[in-house]
Design a protein around this nucleic acid. Sequence first.
DNA 1: CGGGCAGGCTAACTTTGTTAGCCGACTCTC
DNA 2: GAGAGTCGGCTAACAAAGTTAGCCTGCCCG
Lengths: 220, 220
Amino acid sequence: MTRSSSLPGAGPALDEGAGRGDGGGAAAVRSPAVPAPPLPRVAARPAPPERSERVREIVAAGRALLAAEGPDTLTMRRVGEVVGIRAASLYKHLPGKPALEAALVEDALFAIGDQLHAVVDAASAADVVTSLVAEYRRFAFANASLYRLATSGRVDRSLFVPGLDDWSGEPFYRATGDPWVAQALFGATHGLVVLEMDDAFSNSSDLGATWRAMAAAFTR
Amino acid sequence: MTRSSSLPGAGPALDEGAGRGDGGGAAAVRSPAVPAPPLPRVAARPAPPERSERVREIVAAGRALLAAEGPDTLTMRRVGEVVGIRAASLYKHLPGKPALEAALVEDALFAIGDQLHAVVDAASAADVVTSLVAEYRRFAFANASLYRLATSGRVDRSLFVPGLDDWSGEPFYRATGDPWVAQALFGATHGLVVLEMDDAFSNSSDLGATWRAMAAAFTR
DNA sequence: CGGGCAGGCTAACTTTGTTAGCCGACTCTC
DNA sequence: GAGAGTCGGCTAACAAAGTTAGCCTGCCCG
């Protein structure tokens, strides 16, 4: 709950800070409830991609820009400005803007994966789904522009380090115990986040109730 | 299943053609089930926005471009080309590209609203949710670029004719009978569509099972 | 000491949305 | 019927975006 990765200033909070999840033990069931306890971790956390110091600076600059001023200001010229070099020089380090965006999303997946795995580690069987979904929501809104970018459909996921998608999505499987329900829950959570961001729920209704309804639908 | 609004050629299929849903196709099961029947329509279908002939041509051209060649080709110059005038002349009819995008999304909301209301009209209590979700999914994939645009978060919904959001979302309320569950189901459906489009489910798993799991979660 | 390369720079190109200003044709009024 | 005005096209141009080409400087290594 403490880590804030949308710091306006700068600093690779997502990138570096997420080096290792708190790890702890796997599943720690507290309540002697009926539902099955969260499953242990299986998918291995992929090794973070190799990046030169400069590239890390560039990605950090992009993240800072995104967080501080929104998606429109994520331009090669602005990024170069933050790093202290000209936009053209960025191409000595990255093949282009799509690669920068992919790197940003890659970092975000590492960060949210760590957060969600940790939440599942700590949750009881009775409230895994609720906790997981709450953390997902919190993270998405704490990194709104990044989240938007990640789900814009323009990012080439093949640029990610292998296994990242699987690993970062695994918490949903661990929480539900069923691959299809996990995907459905993942989709539902994502969908609610996007709709909330879009302010598609024009009526100022109680969004907490909506989220509770969703969690309830997925809690056996 | 028959109407195709992503016709590569041109023609205002969504705009004009969707005045009335096909109504027929969906839901066939007539089981005497326990769950409450779908609620009646309440929200009024808003009056379509006033548009000059030229504006309708422009919007149709944009829709055709989007369907035929994807989002990247939706440029003012290309749209003008299809219409037969220069890009600059488009500004005699529309204030800018955002207005064109809003008009495209507006039409899409009318079209999907008609489809979904029709499906709910025809569905039995036992399969409303399944039918509704199936039709939503079908529509989204038949108009993928348009769907992407609509949910990109860049579209200014205040440009829509008033009441459109409420009316087009009402089928989810009619199907579930509860506003919060409706929003949750809406979000879940949307989320699954987006994830499926993004190919986020890398494992070639049975997506039908995922959709069934989702529908099951929201079927009392 | 000299070659190569890593990494900066300027200049420039292309494509995008958009604005300014011109002009022909149609319509409406006196 | 003649003038005025508007509608809707046009060309030219601009700014901002991503990107490429080509130059130059300094460092490292043989």
